[in-house]
């Protein structure tokens, strides 16, 4: 780990706190002088900011669930083409299904939540159901190589791309969701390793 950019982080932390109305030092005098008149406006601004943050998190949750959803479809395509790989792939596929469920919008969200489970067959074939946005990295008309080893390699590449996408998304995510994204990204790195490691690992 390199020396980290603490100055920038402190600046970010301060501006974040100010946005939340916790430490509004530069605006303190304004608040004190214009208190009664601005109360309502401040509250409205806070509510608007909270609504924007919630909408941004919901959008991020949808995008992230779509990334892992596309990967799940890829697992299904490989499994359909290579049934003998099931023993090796099923545990990883199950983990990815858990990721999709955990990453998706929470049920209490004001908007209609996207299905958190495995993607529908329509989506798996690359045709999104009407009204829904297609997953960000379109699961490029998944053609599965005929050779099992090549299929595994291609799957590992897709796993790495999804892992990288989650890792990139966590920078601007809310704290708890960033933690989840980091874990899912780490699981992807583990899966890529397991998909490319010798079938039985190096034993113990």
């Amino acid at each position: 780990m390199g020396r980290t950019d603490t100055t920038r982080r402190r600046a970010l932390a301060t501006s974040g706190a100010a946005t939340a109305g916790l430490v509004a030092l530069p605006g303190l005098s304004l608040l004190l002088t214009g208190c009664s008149a601005d109360d309502g406006a401040d509250a409205a601004r806070d509510r608007a900011a909270a609504a924007r943050a919630a909408a941004a998190e919901t959008a991020l949750r949808r995008r992230s669930a779509a990334v892992s959803g596309g990967l799940l479809a890829r697992y299904d395509a490989v499994l359909a083409a290579h049934p003998p790989l099931a023993a090796r792939l099923n545990p990883l596929r199950a983990a990815v299904a858990e990721h999709v469920a955990a990453l998706g919008p929470v049920a209490a969200a004001s908007e209609a939540p996207a299905p958190a489970g495995p993607p529908s067959p329509a989506r798996a074939t690359g045709t999104p159901p009407p009204g829904s946005r297609p997953p960000e990295p379109a699961p490029a008309a998944t053609t599965v190589p005929a050779a099992p080893e090549a299929a595994l390699t291609g799957l590992a590449d897709a796993v790495r791309r999804a892992s990288d996408a989650h890792a990139a998304a966590l920078t601007d995510a809310p704290p708890e969701y960033a933690r989840l994204l980091a874990s899912v990204a780490a699981a992807g790195a583990v899966h890529a390793y397991l998909l490319t490691a010798p079938a039985e690992g190096n034993g113990s």
Binding site: M1, T4, D5, R8, R9, S163, L170, T171, A182, A189
Partner: peptide, 12 residues
């Protein structure tokens, strides 16, 4: 920021 990203790399 950078510390969060580095922690994610360390987790991975």
């Amino acid at each position: 920021g950078a510390l969060r990203r580095e922690a994610a790399v360390a987790l991975r």
